[in-house]
Amino acid sequence: MIEKHAGLQQIVCDCGISQPRTYQSDEFDVMVSDARAAGWSIQRVAGEWTHTCPDCRESTRSNPQGRLL
């Protein structure tokens, strides 16, 4: 999710970890680019945006759930 407070924003994973830096509202593209460069996964799933930190992304890869094969 993207949290906004006092004109600043940052990406936050469902686990609660957030990007270390906050960004001005006009720096949205920079924020997304920095997050992806740091290993975050940002995807649109079923019409909703997901923001997954590198730790959760790695644990999902090593422990896939809901797969038949």
Results as ranks from 00 to 15, higher is better:
R21V: 15
R67F: 01
V45A: 01
E3A: 08
I11M: 06
D55A: 10
A46C: 13
E58R: 06
E27S: 08
G7A: 04
V45F: 04
G16L: 02
S33Q: 15
C13N: 15
R67K: 07
I2N: 11
I2Q: 12
Y23C: 11
C56E: 04
I2M: 10
A6D: 03
Q24V: 01
L68K: 06
T50K: 15
C15I: 02
M1F: 15
A38R: 15
A35R: 09
Q24E: 08
C53P: 14
W40V: 05
G7S: 02
Q24C: 01
D29S: 02
A37K: 09
G66K: 12
D34G: 08
E48S: 01
E3I: 10
V30G: 05
E27N: 13
A37G: 05
L68Y: 06
H51C: 13
M31A: 14
D34Y: 14
R44F: 10
C15G: 02
S18R: 14
G7N: 03
D29P: 00
S33H: 13
H5D: 13
D26C: 09
H51R: 13
R57K: 08
T50C: 15
N63I: 01
K4R: 10
N63W: 00
M1R: 12
W40N: 07
R44P: 08
S59A: 07
T52E: 05
Q10S: 14
E3S: 05
E27T: 12
T50Q: 14
